[in-house]
């Protein structure tokens, strides 16, 4: 479980995160949603420690992560996986080398064991026969899947995803969403996903935190995101045809999403 308590963050005097508190549960896909520029990415990077917060605390289970000394932080980071918006694979390394890098640096596995683990992770994300390709030779969807493989290769306890669907077609987006959800459940990971894709919200949003103008505006699940009477949330959610259609279906059939 990850717990954020009263997070404040500003850049050059401009407040980006204004008193954000929330809990992200283990074994669930926790979504941070909001418009572009609302502070989602800053929040995600603050949770993972890539941004130092001005004040507030981030707990990884019961450990106050952002107050830890460098070396202890580094030790915890070996249990963290992250998928970046553009994949962030190392350009100078092949697919296989990218996924193997954490194993090379942090484990005492034999070469055969490492190769087996990498092959398993690549197979898990359906990347076959691309071991020797460089990131520039991969499609957007493949880059994301290799990034997922790299993120899970160390058996992480915490997984962070920064807009995993950005730049992908709807079909590939669903594949990536399902993959993240399956991995979260399979390995009982605490997953935090930053997105503004309503398809993802409706598909995998087990817990949703809505950020608006740097503040936590709303918190709930995909089951009640369509029923909220929060104006800003509704403006955001119903700008998407997916949400409109889902709402229309529910109203028509008198059903609930549940």
């Amino acid at each position: 479980m990850i717990r954020a308590e009263h997070i404040f963050k500003s850049f050059e005097g401009r407040m980006i995160l204004d008193d954000i508190s929330s809990t992200f549960d283990t074994g669930k896909t926790n979504l941070i949603i909001g418009q572009s520029g609302s502070g989602k990415t800053v929040l995600l990077k603050s949770l993972v420690g890539l941004h130092e917060v001005d004040s507030g605390e981030v707990f990884f289970d019961d450990v106050c992560f952002n107050r830890l000394p460098f070396m202890e932080k580094k030790a915890i980071r070996q249990h963290v996986g992250m998928i970046f918006q553009g994949g962030a694979l190392l350009d100078s390394s092949t697919v296989f080398q990218n996924v193997r890098l954490p194993l090379d640096l942090f484990t005492r596995m034999s070469k055969a064991e490492k190769n087996k683990r990498v092959a398993f992770c690549l197979d898990r994300v359906n990347i076959v026969g691309s071991n020797d390709l460089f990131p520039s030779e991969l499609s957007g969807g493949m880059i994301k899947r290799v990034a997922i493989a790299r993120a899970i290769v160390m058996n992480p306890e915490y997984l962070f995803c920064d807009e995993p669907n950005s730049g992908l077609d709807p079909k590939t987006s669903v594949v990536i969403d399902n993959l993240i959800r399956e991995i979260t459940e399979e390995y009982n990971i605490t997953t935090v996903i930053n997105t503004h894709d309503m398809n993802s919200v409706m598909e995998i949003g087990e817990k949703i935190v809505f950020i608006h103008q740097g503040k936590k505006w709303w918190e709930g699940t995909r089951y009640n995101v369509l029923d909220s009477n929060n104006k800003e949330l509704n403006d955001f959610v119903f700008a998407s045809s997916t949400a409109k259609q889902a709402k229309a279906r529910i109203t028509e059939q008198g059903q609930s999403l549940r």
Partner: peptide
């Protein structure tokens, strides 16, 4: 510099790599 702006350096940091 390219690694910095494409988040590759952040990716290394998140993995616990200096």
């Amino acid at each position: 510099g390219t690694m910095r702006i494409t988040d590759q350096i952040d990716a290394l940091e998140v993995m616990g790599i200096n």
